[in-house]
């Protein structure tokens, strides 16, 4: 990158380059065609989910009716999920919130730290370590389940939330992703300048790198949270119905005698989605907020 050096603390850009009259500015205005394409993309994205909400509002015989138009049983179906004497669904929501929050915060923190080190610090074995991290992601998940379960039995963690938290506090995916972002988003000059300023590596990470990685960290956070929230296989293996995650509760509450209660399932899915919307808003602001700042990184 050939641009001028910035001082370490001036991560926030000078107002000049932000928007306005520079010749390139019109490039950043969206054309009507852009809107059209994006709106089409959104409609396609949202349609199956809207459909699942519609099913949530129908009775069980109308699950397969075309065209999909809403019915009037949404609240009855939601009631069926909630009106359950173990309150399994609410427990599931709370537990999932705890698990997903911890995992997300941890993944962001450790991933950005390791990603920064792998992208921007020079040390022996760096590339080898990166390779190992990438390799860890390639291990087929299903086969890990049996030995991991055996470990949980040994640790006496089965049926506890640690079992679905601790093994996932770090993820190769996150480290790899942050490393790739850091390559581009944090300029070497910036780090060098900070060093000249006498910053320790830790301070460089905390004051220079982390702010620069913020949009990417928000993306990682959003994706991690959603994935943890929707994870089913492992929680189902290692937890018990006493300590369910939300997907686990959903499964239990929608099983009838030898068949699935689809409307209850979709009503529950709709309910389970609401907390994610909050997460969306939180991270969404970060992602959007990052855009203008990120523009003049180096």
């Amino acid at each position: 990158m050939t641009t001028t050096q910035a001082l370490p603390r001036s991560v926030t850009p000078p107002p000049r380059a932000r928007r306005g009259r520079t010749p390139g500015a019109r490039l950043w205005e969206a054309s009507p065609l852009t809107y059209l394409a994006l709106i089409l993309g959104c409609v396609l994205s949202v349609f199956p989910i809207v459909w699942s909400f519609i099913i949530a509002s129908r009775d069980n015989s109308a699950v397969y009716d075309m065209p999909p138009t809403p019915g009037g049983m949404l609240f009855e179906n939601i009631d069926r999920m909630l009106a359950n004497e173990d309150a399994a669904f609410l427990y599931g929501l709370v537990n999932s919130a705890v698990v997903s929050t911890i995992v997300t915060v941890s993944v962001i923190f450790f991933s950005s730290l390791a990603g920064f080190a792998l992208a921007k610090l020079r040390f022996r074995g760096r590339n080898g370590l990166l390779l190992v991290i990438v390799l860890t992601m390639m291990v087929p998940t299903q086969l890990g389940i049996i030995p991991l379960y055996l470990m949980m039995v040994e640790l006496e963690w089965t049926g506890t939330l640690q079992a679905v938290i601790v093994p996932f506090l770090v993820q190769g995916f996150g480290v790899f992703m942050m490393r790739q972002y850091a390559l581009a988003a944090v300029s070497d000059e910036l780090i060098e300048a900070a060093r000249l300023d006498g910053c320790s590596t830790w301070r460089i990470y905390w004051n220079v790198v982390l702010p620069a990685l913020r949009p990417a960290a928000a993306v990682l956070g959003l994706l991690t949270f959603m994935q943890t929230w929707n994870e089913f296989l492992w929680p189902f293996v290692v937890l018990t119905p006493d300590t369910p995650t939300v997907q686990y509760s959903l499964k239990i509450l929608s099983s009838g005698l030898y068949q699935t209660d689809y409307t209850a399932l979709f009503a529950g899915t709709a309910l389970a989605t609401l907390p994610l919307l909050v997460v969306f808003l939180v991270f969404g602001r970060q992602i959007i907020g990052g855009i203008m700042e990120g523009a003049v990184k180096s």
């Binding site: 603390r9 399994a88 709370v94 911890i102 915060v105 923190f109 601790v166």
Partner: peptide, 29 residues
């Protein structure tokens, strides 16, 4: 760096620490 951002970060770290401690006792019927 803005104060808000710094605070957010502190909160996040605290949440992580608290969360790990919580993990063992969370919601069980």
């Amino acid at each position: 760096m803005s104060v808000i951002r710094r605070r957010l970060r502190t909160v996040a770290v605290a949440a992580l620490a608290a969360g790990v401690a919580l993990g063992s006792t969370a919601c069980s019927k």
